[in-house]
Design a binder for these strands. Structure first.
Lengths: 147, 147
DNA sequence: TATTGTTATACTCTATAACTATA
DNA sequence: TATAGTTATAGAGTATAACAATA
């Protein structure tokens, strides 16, 4: 009985979460950063590089849970814009090391400064309790997504 | 000081949430339902129709926060599969009313029964506290997305 | 041979603009 | 004219398969 109730509750929660996540992501994807032409995914890659330093393309793909060809495309965009540079791996020349540039770092910093205006504005409209809930939820969502 | 701290915290939260939501959504989109060939969005539309009854295409588009052409496509898929039926509006024949069929209802029911196996499985692995956090977070995310 | 990354190709979901039918 | 929906077209983001270079 208790188990069944849990199951039902989890199914409902899964459904609700799924729809919320889908919709929120769509809204976020439509909110573009005014100062640059980078997509949501590209900005996320830039943030990873900024945080973790130079990485191989493969490691970057794994960190973002995408396939290597997708990451190649994203990195191409970033490189064309001068946000990152590629260089061949030193010990293994099949690898490609990707590093963030000064422009990339400045972009991340500027972006963080007035980051996610759309979302932050809405977060600001929430109560402190609601924000606390989201703050607790974010790492759980992250963990689920990375499993 | 307090304000600044809030701002900083909100920016960080926005960033974290954004990345979590993006990634989780991508994972979810890759998890297909084994019994049918419906996309995540199509299943969501079916769920709305199941809950709210017959709706016009425009109302459905607004409910899902997509543009009418996108909804036309989704409804085409659903209609081809026999999950919904179209009929012209009675008072206004420009409108198209979309209703869920028995197959559609059965699909929603079956889907709910073993809904979101991927997500529910992961939710089941969480602690009760963590599930409670997500249960509280889902409607907040939903509200943010619908604003 | 196995692995790293790239190229080629295709699919899904979304959008905007132009069009049709009705009001 | 204005509105509801559709068709046509395009763009972003993702994937798989085939390929190149290196190990």
């Amino acid at each position: 009985m208790t188990t069944q109730q849990h199951t039902r509750t989890d199914a409902g929660l899964a459904s609700e979460l799924r729809i919320s996540v889908m919709r929120l992501r769509r809204r976020l994807a439509n909110e573009r950063h005014p100062d640059n032409d980078l997509s949501l995914g590209a900005m996320a890659v830039l943030a990873v590089l900024n945080r973790r330093g130079e990485m191989t393309l493969g490691a970057l793909a794994e960190a973002e849970s995408v396939q290597p060809p997708s990451m190649t495309r994203t990195v191409n965009c970033l490189e064309e814009g001068g946000y990152v540079v590629r260089r061949p791996g030193e010990t293994d020349r099949r690898q490609v090391l990707i590093a963030i540039t000064d422009l990339g770092r400045a972009t991340v910093a500027a972006d963080r400064e007035r980051r996610d205006a759309w979302l932050a504005k809405r977060l600001g409209a929430l109560s402190a309790d609601e924000r606390a809930v989201l703050r607790a939820a974010a790492p759980i969502l992250e963990r689920i997504a990375n499993e």
